[in-house]
């Protein structure tokens, strides 16, 4: 089927996709917040060599990094209800978006944990010695000395991970989520026009990516306190 670009249809799609932007953004936000939290726990389990948890964390991270997110999505969508049913919990009525939030959060956690692990590892050993030698506890050393320094190292990779997370949300429609891409699909089958929909979707994705890039660029500038230090 040969299509000509129809500008009226582009204009028609624009507001219809705009209202679905919050769905896309909510997936990114939820996955970023919970991904960072869980990722930090995973990273700590490895850095602090916590008994057993350390191995669990390693295996989970390589599984999550080594399988496509769409596989993880369906594993969770079909597998989790079965698992929970076994312990007497029925989640059949749960909105699908929660499966998406969960999938994207743990997927992001794997990537964030690797970023955090290496950026915490990049803080010189001597900074630990100086802090603990000053009488700070290990937790205080993390909070006040090590983490603030690793933020500067972690920011660029974090920005990239969130950007690819944004791109990955384009798969959520496979569960029937009506985000920006899901809306293109839905309206496409009604209007018979897809190209216009994808053009508008592309515009929104570029917009969000550029916005993310801007935010992280600003943030990086703000936290680079050590230009000469090694």
């Amino acid at each position: 089927m040969l299509m000509r670009l129809d500008w009226d249809t582009v204009v028609y799609f624009f507001p219809k996709l705009l209202v679905k932007l919050p769905v896309t953004i909510s997936i990114v936000l939820v996955a970023t917040v919970f991904g960072l939290l869980l990722g930090f726990v995973l990273a700590l389990a490895q850095l602090e060599r916590v008994f057993v948890l350390r191995q669990v964390s390693k295996i989970a991270v390589s599984f999550l990094r080594g399988t496509p997110i769409i596989v993880q999505m369906f594993l969770i969508f079909f597998g989790l209800p079965l698992l929970l049913k076994a312990i007497g919990l029925d989640i059949d009525d749960l909105d699908k978006i929660w499966f998406i939030y969960l999938t994207y959060s743990i997927n992001a956690a794997a990537f964030f944990s690797e970023i955090l692990r290496s950026s915490i590892g990049a803080v010189p050993r001597a900074q630990w010695d100086a802090a603990e030698g000053s009488g700070l506890t290990r937790a205080q050393t993390y909070r006040r000395i090590v983490l603030p320094q690793s933020v500067a190292v972690a920011l660029p990779a974090t920005g990239m991970t969130i950007t690819s997370l944004l791109q990955d949300t384009s798969l959520a429609f496979m569960l029937g989520i009506v985000d920006v891409v899901g809306q293109v699909k839905a309206l496409g089958s009604i209007t018979g026009r897809l190209l216009e929909g994808y053009i508008v979707a592309a515009f929104f994705f570029v917009l969000l990516s550029v916005l993310l890039e801007r935010i992280f660029h600003k943030a990086e500038k703000k936290v680079t306190f050590r230009k000469k230090a090694t």
Binding site: Q127, A130, A131, L136, P148
Partner: peptide, 21 residues
């Protein structure tokens, strides 16, 4: 190698152990 806290000012380097520890 001095090992001052790289994310802190001179004053904060000195107050850190006092306030936190």
């Amino acid at each position: 190698n001095y090992d001052l806290f790289l994310n802190k000012t001179v004053l904060q380097n000195v107050t850190e152990g006092l306030i936190v520890a």
